[in-house]
Amino acid sequence: MQNKRNSLNKVRTLQEAMTYMNNGCSLMFGGFGGVGNPPSLINGLLEKGINDLTLIGNDAGFPTIGIGKLISQGRAKKLIASHIGSNPVAGQLMVDEKLEVEFSPQGTLAERIRAGGVGLGGVLTDIGLDSMMEDGKQKVEVEGKTYLVEAALKADVAIVYAKRADEFGNLIYETSARNTNPLVAMAGKITIAEVEEIVPVGNLHPYEIHTPGIFVDVVVQSKGVDWKWAWE
């Protein structure tokens, strides 16, 4: 039994987790306005000096909080998000053509991520018809109604933040920090979870688990958050 449990242990050091991320990779992140971003992993990316990232997530965070730190320091070449208004640095980088930004309505973005996680090619939506949002996108007609085809989103690496995890990677999120994390956790070729508390397998009640460990490849102990004050 001890050997079986060891084979299910996905807990790694921050340094080991960093080996999955390299220059030019696509990186999907959980969080909303910084809340739910994994701070230790983001700081690890900064310390490793990783550049030319394609970032996929809800927003651009704040200049000095969460994913916003990567954007503010020029580590991203492209951002796919629903808005960037909370990070004026991102806006300036976009205006200066130093950051490519692909906007996607928030609900559509969430569905594109979910589609990537469950193996679909994309989703159909009427959001954006007859606007600049439809430029370059395929249209299809279903039962007499026209839709835009929005491609699914996946990433080389997905990083999420959770309150608790067991050694197999079953995750429990805390209140609003749950936000996009469950969707993001499914959509990475490699998913790394930063968590506040790690417990042995069997210590989490099955009904409490939000993300099953089958979606998680690596679990990292968090060193603490940097975003709570922004919402207090």
Rank of each mutant, 00 (worst) to 15 (best):
M94E: 07
E174C: 10
Y173C: 14
R75G: 04
L171A: 08
G74I: 13
V149G: 04
M132C: 00
A152G: 03
S176D: 12
N87H: 09
M186W: 05
R114Q: 10
G117C: 05
A155S: 07
E97C: 08
D166S: 05
Q92A: 00
A162I: 13
R114V: 12
N181V: 13
M133I: 02
R75I: 15
L109S: 05
D126R: 04
T108G: 10
L70S: 03
P105G: 01
A177T: 14
V95M: 01
S86T: 01
E150W: 15
A187D: 09
L70Q: 03
G121Y: 14
E143R: 12
I67T: 06
A177I: 02
D156G: 06
S176N: 13
A162C: 13
M132A: 04
L79C: 09
K69P: 00
A151P: 05
T125A: 00
G91C: 01
L93K: 02
V95K: 03
A162T: 14
K154N: 13
I65W: 04
I172N: 07
L93H: 04
V140M: 10
G188C: 15
R178W: 13
V95D: 03
I67M: 13
R112K: 10
G128W: 04
V157W: 09
S131T: 00
D156F: 00
K154R: 05
R112Q: 05
T175W: 06
A155Q: 10
I192V: 15
G122R: 06
P88T: 15
A177R: 05
D126N: 07
T146I: 15
K137H: 05
K69R: 11
G128L: 04
K145W: 06
I84L: 00
K78I: 11
K154V: 13
L171M: 07
P182F: 14
A152V: 01
M133S: 14
G144A: 03
G117D: 09
G188D: 03
E150V: 12
